[in-house]
């Protein structure tokens, strides 16, 4: 499946299959994504969404298939690729009680781009401050990360990914457990990044907020059920096939409201 864009594909995946021991987590995944695109991947629990992100990062080895990102082959050239990626993991996987300040977390995005033992410069601090400003958290620079609410912590993790000045942003459930205001901030920032030329791939379970901002949606349940423009594929038939339960799609003027699929995906 291919989605149009202005230039060469940023992400190209052909016949990708990934297995954990003897169980297939992803089967025959093929898609291309070009620059300046915002793709949301949705699907039920265990559908392989996080595995797909990890395969793109070269963190899991495919059984079959070819992955090329920004012209590099993954996993063999994964370190070159990773230098150009901003990644936001699931917030729940991080122990929030670890003693770090917000600025430490955001500056980690700069550390990843540096060579061995090179110190952070004033420029790195400026980039980190700007990234924090983009998620409206600039007043929290010197605050302990542990003192923030879940939504604020999520914004800081996104700022860290932005501080890498990435060509490709990968986000694993960035909208999970955050309030509506934080969702708006996150989605606006991601949309702005996509408009600036960054390719954004977001895994999410919350369909409704992403309809407006995503260029493309991938419906995933171990294999790609459908991929295309949100309005073309978010219909009851394809969503019900993806979530293996009845899903209702209600058209409300320009808006689409989906119910029955907001089960954690």
């Amino acid at each position: 499946m291919e989605v149009e864009g202005s230039m060469n594909p940023v992400v190209s995946v052909k016949n990708l299959s990934v297995a954990y021991e003897d169980k297939l987590a992803l089967e025959d995944i093929t898609f291309e994504l070009k620059e300046q695109a915002f793709l949301s991947i949705i699907g039920p629990n265990g559908s392989g969404k996080t595995t797909l992100l990890k395969a793109l990062l070269g963190m899991v080895r495919p059984v079959t298939g070819i992955i090329r990102i920004l012209g590099y082959e993954v996993p063999s050239e994964r370190y070159e690729v990773r230098k150009q990626i901003g990644y936001v993991p699931q917030r729940e996987r991080i122990d929030p009680t670890k003693p770090v300040l917000v600025k430490d977390v955001v500056l980690m995005g700069r550390i990843a781009k540096k060579g061995w033992s090179r110190r952070l410069t004033e420029k790195d601090h400026d980039v980190a401050r700007r990234a924090l400003e983009m998620v409206e958290m600039n007043d929290f620079w010197d605050e302990p990360y542990a003192h923030l609410s879940g939504g604020q912590q999520q914004r800081v993790l996104i700022a860290r990914a932005l501080a890498t000045e990435p060509k490709l942003l990968l986000l694993d459930e960035p909208l999970s457990g955050v309030d509506a205001a934080t969702q708006d901030v996150i989605l606006n920032v991601l949309r702005e990044e996509a408009d600036r030329g960054v390719t954004v791939i977001m895994v999410t379970h919350d369909l409704n907020p992403l309809i407006e901002v995503s260029d493309y949606v991938m419906l995933l349940n171990r294999t790609i059920i459908a991929m295309g423009r949100s309005r073309d594929i978010l219909n009851e038939y394809l969503l019900s096939r993806t979530f293996m339960r009845r899903v209702s799609v209600i058209m409300a003027g320009e808006k689409i409201v989906i119910s029955g699929a907001d089960h954690h995906a």
């Binding site: 963190m59 990773r82 901003g86 993991p89 991080i94 977390v105 980690m108 990843a112 781009k113 860290r160």
Partner: peptide, 11 residues
């Protein structure tokens, strides 16, 4: 702090 992101971002 976050070994998974460190690996994903190139360390």
């Amino acid at each position: 702090f976050d070994i998974e992101a460190a690996e994903a971002m190139g360390l």
